Structure formats: C-alpha cells, structure tokens
Computed example of a mutant assay.
Amino acid sequence: MRPQDIVVLIKILTMYNESWQLKDLANSLYISNSEVSESLERSVYAGLIDFGKRNVHRGNLLDFLIYGMKYVFPAQPGILARGLPTAHSHPFLQTFISSDQAYVWPSPSGSILGQAIEPLYANQVKAAQGDDELYRLLALLDVIRVGKLREKNIAEKELKEILYHVT
C-alpha cells in the first residue's frame, strides 16, 4: 500500500456509486491514470476493494484506517508553515475539538499558520481544495494520524457514520 491508495479509496466513496472512469479519479486527485490503476490493483490485493474495482469494502477500509493507518502512514507535526487547515483545525472538526495549536498541510495559497502535517501525497492540497467532502475525510484521517485519544475517538465515530451512511 502507498499513502495515495487511501485517498483513491476515499474519493471513490465520495462519488456515491456514480459512474466513473479512471480518468475521472485521476483528474480529481491530480494523479496519473496509471497511478490510479496501480493503486486499485494494490487495494484489490489488500482486500480493500472488490475485484471489479468499483465497490470499496467499507468494513475492511474502516478497520485499516482506525487500527493500521497511524502505524503504516504515521505523521508528526512539523515546523510552522502557512497552509490548509487539517486534523482538528479543519472547520468541521473545530465544532468538536478546540485547540490553540493549528495543524496545516503546507501550501503557498494557505491562509492559516500552523504546524505542518505531511499530506498523504503531493497533490492532496489541490484535490482537497476542489472537494469539500474529500477534504473533511482526509482531515479526519489526520486526526487519527496525529491526534490524542479523545480526538481520535471523535474522528473514529465520524468516520464510521460517514462510511456507513454513504450510499
């Protein structure tokens, strides 16, 4: 598995069973068609998506996100940088969690100063800026990667609700 594989799977979930092609995923995530294809192959092998590469195995993905992601794709808050708010600094999560310290994905177009969190892949900020739902889900994943226990519990609850109520 590679970090962008998680983003590809999350993006598929946000498409609500719409008809899509590899190029649709590639364009919306700012990665190449071949990267999407290889990502889907790895996800089939890992049991996170079906052999037809259309239906994400939500239970398996949720288990991986909650229990494995922090070990496979860990993150440590870094230097102060301007960027796009993530983790508990995302506007959606600020309704549950308050903190004096902001976390951001570094970006020249960012307006918030905070500790840098390494995105899962290079063009994640661009993809998130064009898709509010993807952005919210990726911020929840960052809570799991860098949050404290209480914050992680909130993120897990929200992820469960989102993943099981997406039709």
Rank of each mutant, 00 (worst) to 15 (best):
Y45T: 12
E41M: 07
E38G: 11
K23V: 05
V44N: 04
S39T: 05
T86L: 03
I31G: 12
G83F: 00
F51V: 03
Y30E: 08
L25D: 12
D24N: 15
N55Q: 10
W20N: 08
N27W: 02
P74W: 09
S28V: 01
L29C: 07
P74Q: 13
Y30F: 13
Q76E: 05
A26V: 05
E35Q: 15
N27S: 15
I31N: 11
A46Y: 11
G83P: 00
T14K: 11
V36G: 03
A81W: 01
A81T: 00
I49A: 06
A81F: 01
G83A: 11
F73A: 00
N55W: 05
V36T: 08
A87I: 07
N60D: 13
I79E: 15
F64P: 07
G52Q: 15
V36S: 05
E38F: 12
L80W: 07
L61K: 12
P85D: 02
W20I: 08
L84M: 09
M15Y: 10
D24P: 03
S37P: 08
K53A: 11
L48I: 05
K23H: 12
L80V: 11
Q21H: 12
N55H: 15
L84R: 14
V72Y: 13
N17Q: 15
L25C: 14
P77C: 05
A87D: 10
K70T: 13
S37H: 12
I66M: 03
R58V: 15
N27H: 02
Y16G: 00
N27M: 06
T86P: 06
I66F: 09
S37D: 12
I66C: 05
R58F: 03
I49F: 02
G59L: 10
Q21D: 02
G78N: 06
N60A: 15
A46C: 03
Y16T: 00
F73L: 11
E18G: 03
F64G: 10
N27A: 15
L65Q: 07
Y67L: 13
K70L: 00
A46Q: 01
H88L: 13
